[in-house]
Amino acid sequence: MTDVDVQLDQLAEAAHTLSRTLRRTGELEVGLEQLPTSELDVLRFVVTHPAASVSEVARGLRLQTSNVSTTVRALVERGLLVRQPDPRDHRRSLLRSSPLADEHRRLLGRAWSRSIAGALAELEDGDAAAIRAAVPALTRLAESLRRRAEG
């Protein structure tokens, strides 16, 4: 295993730990129910692809349409997704995040920012500066990985 391989393994592990920790602590901090991963994945897809249909979500996430349909039904019942008739084809529905989901995302975003700010304050100045400087590149990496995952 090369040094680059080791660094990539460390980056993947750090990103995974960061994501899971922020999700868990953010939801607790703002008092939100933790969504099952399948619901969170569908909700995130719809946020980035407003007006997607169930079949488009299924294709984008590489899931069975029946599973996505069940997940969408649960998110609609929770008040986090809204189904709207497709004006071009009334047999299908288009999905959008609800105002409640948008408010939850806003609350979570603020909680995550506070957590990161607190953790950065505990790091050495050089480490905190390096992390802040890496934000644009990490954002591009995340977007590239998201596009690749969606095919």
Rank of each mutant, 00 (worst) to 15 (best):
W112S: 06
W112F: 12
A142R: 10
L141T: 13
L81K: 04
W112R: 13
A134P: 07
A134W: 07
E124K: 02
R83V: 05
W112V: 13
R140S: 14
A128F: 05
P85V: 11
L123S: 05
L141C: 14
I131S: 03
L120V: 02
Q84D: 06
S113T: 11
L120K: 06
Q84N: 08
A133Y: 01
A117D: 04
P85A: 09
R88T: 15
A101Q: 11
S113C: 03
Q84L: 10
L141K: 09
L94Y: 09
L108V: 13
S98R: 04
A119C: 00
I131L: 13
R92V: 15
D127C: 07
P87V: 13
D86N: 09
A119M: 05
R110S: 08
R132L: 09
L120R: 04
G118Y: 03
Q84C: 06
S115R: 09
V135N: 02
D102Y: 00
V135D: 08
R92K: 14
I116E: 07
R96W: 03
D127F: 01
G126H: 01
H104V: 01
D125I: 05
P136S: 01
R114S: 10
I131E: 06
L81M: 03
R96M: 07
R110W: 02
G109M: 11
V82L: 10
D127A: 09
R92W: 07
L120D: 09
R96S: 12
D125C: 00
H90P: 15
W112G: 14
L81W: 04
R105T: 03
R132D: 11
A121D: 05
E122A: 05
E124L: 00
R91T: 15
S115E: 08
H90D: 15
D89T: 11
R106N: 03
Q84A: 06
A137G: 13
R105S: 02
A128Y: 00
A137Q: 13
P85S: 07
S98F: 01
R132G: 10
D125S: 07
E124C: 00
